[in-house]
Amino acid sequence: MQIFVKGLTGKTTTLEVEPSDTIENVKAKIQDKTGLPPDQQRLIFAGKQLEDGRTLSDYNIQKESTLHIVWR
């Protein structure tokens, strides 16, 4: 499925993911596209910070959802 990651600059990155992907895995995909290391990424969805060990489905993140990224 496709999801979007929007940064503070307003730039949006598209990712191809599975609902079973962990947040850690998603951060690795973001690094592949942007070069930003996972330890500098904070992902937010529906006002919650996403924890590395959880999956996208744990947070009810579905296709075409938009996550927000904040740099540490």
Rank of each mutant, 00 (worst) to 15 (best):
T13F: 15
E18P: 03
E51C: 06
K48T: 14
V26G: 00
R54A: 09
E64H: 13
I61G: 01
S20E: 12
D32L: 11
S57N: 11
T66C: 05
L43M: 03
I3D: 01
W71Q: 13
R54T: 06
T22A: 04
N60D: 09
T13Y: 15
T22S: 09
T12Y: 11
V5R: 01
L56K: 00
I30S: 01
I30N: 01
K11H: 13
L56C: 03
V26Y: 00
K33M: 10
E51T: 06
P38S: 13
Q62W: 08
F4G: 02
W71N: 11
L8I: 13
E64T: 06
D39K: 11
D21H: 05
P37R: 14
Q49R: 09
Q49E: 13
T12I: 14
Q49G: 08
Y59A: 02
Q62L: 10
R42F: 15
D21E: 12
G53N: 11
P19T: 08
I44A: 05
E16A: 08
Y59F: 03
L8T: 13
I61H: 00
F45G: 02
H68C: 07
M1E: 02
G47L: 04
S20C: 06
I23Y: 01
P38T: 13
L67M: 05
P19H: 06
L50D: 00
Q49M: 12
S57T: 07
R42G: 07
P19E: 06
A46Y: 07
S57A: 14
G53E: 09
I61W: 01
L56I: 10
K33F: 11
T9S: 13
H68S: 10
E51D: 07
Y59Q: 02
K48D: 06
G10N: 09
I23C: 02
Q49D: 15
Y59N: 02
G7N: 11
Q62P: 07
H68Q: 12
Q31W: 15
G10K: 04
I61K: 00
K11T: 12
V17K: 00
R42D: 15
I61E: 00
V26M: 03
T34C: 06
L43W: 03
I44C: 07
Q41T: 15
Q41E: 02
A28V: 12
E16R: 09
K29W: 04
I69S: 03
V17W: 02
V17Y: 03
R54S: 06
Q31G: 08
S65A: 12
M1Y: 14
I69H: 03
V70T: 09
L15H: 03
D52F: 04
V26H: 00
Q40G: 11
V17T: 03
F45K: 02
D58K: 02
K6M: 15
G7V: 09
V17Q: 01
L8G: 09
L50A: 01
L43S: 00
Q40R: 13
A28T: 10
I3K: 00
N25S: 15
T9D: 14
S65R: 03
L8P: 14
T14G: 05
T22C: 03
L56Y: 00
S65K: 03
P38N: 08
I61D: 00
D39A: 10
D39T: 12
I3C: 02
Y59V: 02
E64Y: 13
T22P: 04
L56M: 05
Y59W: 02
L15C: 02
W71V: 14
I30T: 02
T13S: 09
V5W: 02
T66E: 07
M1G: 02
T9L: 13
K33H: 10
D58T: 04
R72S: 15
S57P: 02
G47K: 04
L15P: 00
Q62F: 09
G47E: 05
E16D: 12
W71T: 13
I44F: 14
Q40Y: 10
I61T: 01
E64P: 03
W71K: 09
L43C: 01
T22K: 09
K63N: 15
T13D: 08
I30Y: 10
F45C: 03
H68R: 08
A46E: 15
Q40N: 09
T14A: 11
D52Q: 04
P37G: 08
G7Q: 09
H68T: 14
T9R: 08
K33L: 15
E64Q: 08
K33N: 07
D21A: 07
K63R: 11
F45S: 03
K48W: 08
Q2C: 06
K48C: 05
I3L: 05
Q40S: 11
N60Y: 06
Q40D: 07
Q41L: 14
T55Y: 05
S20K: 08
K33E: 09
K6Y: 08
I44K: 05
Q62I: 13
P19N: 05
T66D: 03
M1Q: 03
V70M: 10
K33S: 08
T12K: 08
L8Y: 14
V5T: 03
E18A: 11
Y59T: 01
R54G: 05
T9P: 13
I69K: 01
D21P: 00
S65N: 11
G10E: 06
S57Y: 09
G53F: 10
D52A: 06
G35V: 02
D52G: 06
A28N: 10
L36A: 05
V70F: 13
